[in-house]
Design a protein around this nucleic acid. Structure first.
Lengths: 219, 219
DNA sequence: ACCGGCATCAATCGAAAGGTGGAGTACGGA
DNA sequence: TCCGTACTCCACCTTTCGATTGATGCCGGT
């Protein structure tokens, strides 16, 4: 039984906060979601910082959060900041791409769901309702990838390994990497051997390709 | 609603066709552009094929075309198909990223303008009007990049070189590349030497990094 | 206290990649 | 026609990389 101390039985509208740096996307989300009678878009903001601020107000039930904001604060950080609070709204992460790195960061940050921006409106609305109910809402593609991730934990590189691989992707030779990280070349090679094993490849270029495909490093 | 008689000076409404595979983006563009009194969105379509088809009707003055459709026909191909016709509408290309490769393909395909999706609504509307008037409409970022491209023609890789470098970026060894392209390893090496010279680098990984940074290859 | 993962380093050997210097064909513009 | 560019190929040599093996110290969890 839902007891609400406020002003009587108010309509059970789900309050939405839209956070995306693209004006067009904000307008689109608003247009799509406002056709649902039980949704109410209470605000839309262009930055992650404003999202964190605005999400504190009690009229927000679900935050639709973009992951890639132009520079500055990341969507995942904003997600963490929002969900860390008492009585926080649910956060539904919206992004264009389904790279593993993004997904993992968002889930760890406390996102209730994860959706791709190319999802059809019905799927979007359904996910919002699922999230509002406190249940996890993951796009099928995403759920599958998470399963893969669980099954193959070997794909996770250690911090140092990621660091080395990032420099490899930047085009540095082993010698340069060793100088940059104050290591011997032997150590760099050693890290690379482990990286290759984890990624199932046998050369630096294919390691970069594999890691990029899985979102383990930035390009 | 507004019925227009065929005769007499009709209101100079600019007919728009929106082509984007994301429902949210279509709705957003529609919402943003329909606030302009002199614009009329005559249709929106989710595929490049439908865009080509619909753009043939005479009520379309400007096509707003996404470049990355989910698979199948590319936005640049659709652009080429549309602009090839008699009395073709103007095509304004809209995309999320400003990689040089995309820009070049779109311009070559006959696009009148090129805009980033994160552009503010006013800029969007201004670009549509500019395009409708037949003038070139390029986002400042884009224009700058094109200037760079002009100034440094050495950066432009030949078709074959790009092909080789793409395979390098995919993680293939010289031996595999030679088999894939029916070349000798010597030829592959030769291409790579030229690529290194043009990019000012000295290894395959740094070539991939440099080319990725300049948008010469897809990641 | 022990084990496993992480990070560090060493030595060696063969394979792959890079550097240099040609060289021939084909095509298109000056 | 001549020049430049792109594309193809060869030989030789040097450097870098990858594969293997083995070792040490640290830290966190059982």
């Amino acid at each position: 039984m839902t007891h609400r101390p406020e002003t009587g039985p108010r309509p059970a509208a789900i309050g939405l906060l839209l956070a995306d740096d693209h004006p067009v996307v904000r307008a689109g989300l608003r247009a799509v979601l406002e056709t649902e009678p039980d949704f109410e878009v209470v605000a839309d903001v262009p930055t992650a910082e404003e999202a964190v601020e605005r999400a504190a107000r009690p009229d927000v039930d679900v935050v639709l959060m973009d992951l890639q904001f132009g520079g500055r604060m990341l969507g995942s950080q904003a997600t963490a900041a929002i969900t860390a609070r008492e009585d926080a709204p649910r956060v539904l992460v919206l992004t264009t791409f389904d790279t593993d790195a993004d997904i993992l960061a968002a889930i760890e940050a406390g996102a209730t769901g994860y959706l791709l921006k190319d999802a059809p409106p019905e799927e979007l609305a359904a996910a919002v309702r699922t999230a509002a109910a406190g249940k996890s809402a993951l796009a099928p593609t995403i759920a599958l990838r998470l399963m893969d991730r669980m099954r193959a934990p070997a794909t996770a590189l250690s911090r140092r390994e990621t660091e080395v691989l990032q420099l490899v992707a930047d085009g540095l030779s082993n010698a340069r990497i060793s100088k940059r990280l104050f290591l011997s070349q032997a150590t760099v090679k050693s890290h690379l051997v482990h990286i290759y094993a984890k990624l199932g490849v046998d050369s630096r270029t294919s390691a970069v390709a594999a890691a990029t495909a899985r979102g383990l490093i930035r390009r």
